[in-house]
Design a protein around this nucleic acid. Sequence first.
DNA 1: GGCGAAATGGAATTTTCATTCCATTTTGCT
DNA 2: AGCAAAATGGAATGAAAATTCCATTTCGCC
Lengths: 284, 284
Amino acid sequence: MSQLDTLPKDFAGLRQRIVERAAALPKRLTQIAAYALEHPDEIAFGTVASIAEQAEVQPSALVRFAQSMGYQGFSDLQEVFRSRLRDRILNYEERIEQLRLHALSASKSTVLFHGFSEAAEKSIGSLREKLDPAALDRAVDILSKAETIYLIGLRRSFPISSYMAYAFGKLGVRSMLIDAVGGLAAEQIAAATRKDAVLAVSFTPYASESVALAQAAAARHVPMVAVTDSPFSPLAQIADLWFEVVEANFEGFRSMAATLSLAMTLTVAVAEKRTKTEPRIRAT
Amino acid sequence: MSQLDTLPKDFAGLRQRIVERAAALPKRLTQIAAYALEHPDEIAFGTVASIAEQAEVQPSALVRFAQSMGYQGFSDLQEVFRSRLRDRILNYEERIEQLRLHALSASKSTVLFHGFSEAAEKSIGSLREKLDPAALDRAVDILSKAETIYLIGLRRSFPISSYMAYAFGKLGVRSMLIDAVGGLAAEQIAAATRKDAVLAVSFTPYASESVALAQAAAARHVPMVAVTDSPFSPLAQIADLWFEVVEANFEGFRSMAATLSLAMTLTVAVAEKRTKTEPRIRAT
DNA sequence: GGCGAAATGGAATTTTCATTCCATTTTGCT
DNA sequence: AGCAAAATGGAATGAAAATTCCATTTCGCC
């Protein structure tokens, strides 16, 4: 309670404090300290009653333990254990501290920059964890068999599709960017057949034109790989194979970093797979 | 409630059930389904009240959702979301092991993906270290004073400029994307005056058309902010202010993540600075 | 366009949980 | 050993949270 020094807000700091003070603590509280360090996720998710039972102490002892560490009650201490679980997923702890320091002295635009960067890093990190290698291989397989790859991605997704069009061009892979210039989107995709393939990219709120184009292609049985953000996406319904990419956002603006990384991967992988069959130009 | 079939005890099963049933669910519950899959951590850690607020629904709707998935109440469903996190933590060491295995037996495309992701993370990290906050503020200042912001960025930089055009549009900032449709690039930029501004993006090898357009604008004294990769870039010579962004590359393909992060920052910062003068639309 | 059923919002209620309090036990010191 | 101070256990309390209930709105069908 009478805690003049700053009380640990992150798990690393709390852990250190527990180790330091444990020796000077009464028996029952030492017991709790040991339990806490050994079963941190129990502390994070359990209730006072359930933890007390597990650790074979009284509920009140848990509260006293938290107070002896400087917190007002058990709930405050538990919050630190929970934050550890949130952060650990992406290995953050240090980052957040750093960001906090930055944020104090920084201008509004600097805060924005770090916020967007953070969102980008988070997005990439989470896709790295959950991207299915087998799905990636299948997607490359579908696309590399296509005579022409049709790229659907308008509005927010247009940077992705236009990047792929650029890179495919450099790599000598025949592709068609559906850019809807002159209102000719439908005409642009009309030539796609079963021998081609579609790569469709769309995120909430799904641009209705992109969806309509993808559906038109699907109706004609053009093989389709989709990149979208939810199993409820209209693209997920119609694609032969789809990737779920959830981008983190900052101030309501979603990152595109993870999607872009995936797009680059597909582009290069398809180009390389093709080169094995028919030799082609290689470029940056 | 009247759940004869086994109700999901692990997250994977629950996830599948949510996807299956969501279509047949009423509007509000579908909304919750989407939120739950997109923010599983929130469900795991939050309280009914806090989650309800985040997802913009009533607390009672969350309980109904849980019941429609076969659970007795929200707490039971939440327990599944929590178990997912527990498991994830327990698997942490395994994960590293798994990653090691991946690296050995990984498919070519997985290696590509991790390579590009790493390049993106590196690029962002290095820009975070060296981006000058004062320069950022000045750039925002220059751009926010413009009547119309002309966006120059072709070929490899086109994803960046097209993203900014999209975002500026959403934010109600007048901008003109020089997309060179119909070979009309010169005409597109011809209207720019001293009261406007140019944001030019170009990297080695500098697309000659981009450079020519920027020079044309500079000759007419249009204020210019540039994003490029070297002090020797032709853009650096003519811009009033320029950012050096060095993107890491993998297998000869440069990331765009850092540039994109900077682009988002400029876009939002300019929009916010403008809103102080004249009220405008706010959107994602 | 009107009727009935389903869905929804929000307040009321119940349950669960953290915290506090106090009687009892243990510990440390003389 | 005997006393005071600290620690402990367990029940009582109050706060917060989940759940239920009901009036109102929305939706689908005739």
